[in-house]
Computed example of a mutant assay.
Amino acid sequence: MVGIRIKRLRIEKGLSINELSEKAGVSKSYLSYIERGIQQNPSLQVLSRLAKTLDTDVEDLLDQRKKAEPTEMIQVDREWIELVHDAIDNGVTKEEFAHYLDFIKFKNMNGGNE
């Protein structure tokens, strides 16, 4: 998806969404829609301005063979990382963690009622 590629390149370049928006001459809200996949077919003119600002070309932005790795798409909150480290430090195994997740999914499917 072009939005994921644009967001990844923006982050790699150390640009905020505001900075990329201003430098490329694309409204912040429209850029946000592209990055979130709400706007899936931005015009060639917009893609060209974004590509130039990100030091790449339109073909690179549209290249679907260059799928972003899941770890590149997800930025994990520091608190989540600390919770996982705490669980590991307290001896929680992967199997136990998976069991907890299954239990939470079960509770959510049943409206949180036991």
Rank of each mutant, 00 (worst) to 15 (best):
I34N: 11
W80G: 09
Q40R: 15
V84E: 01
N113S: 02
N113V: 11
K13P: 09
A98S: 14
E22Q: 15
G14L: 14
L9W: 07
Y33P: 01
L83D: 05
N41A: 05
I81W: 02
K67H: 01
I6N: 05
L101P: 02
T93G: 03
R8C: 12
S48W: 02
E59F: 08
E19Y: 03
R78Y: 05
I17S: 07
D55A: 08
Q40I: 13
D77F: 04
I17D: 04
L61N: 05
Y33N: 01
A24V: 04
R65I: 10
E82I: 01
G37F: 15
Q64C: 08
G91T: 00
S16E: 11
E82P: 02
E114T: 11
A24Y: 05
S43W: 06
L62W: 09
E96F: 15
E79Y: 08
R65Q: 09
V76E: 13
I6G: 10
K105S: 07
W80P: 00
R36M: 12
G111Y: 13
Q40Y: 05
L50H: 08
L54N: 10
Y30S: 08
V92L: 09
E35R: 03
V46D: 02
I74K: 13
I104R: 01
Q45Y: 08
D60N: 12
E59I: 12
Y100T: 06
D60M: 02
S21D: 07
A98P: 03
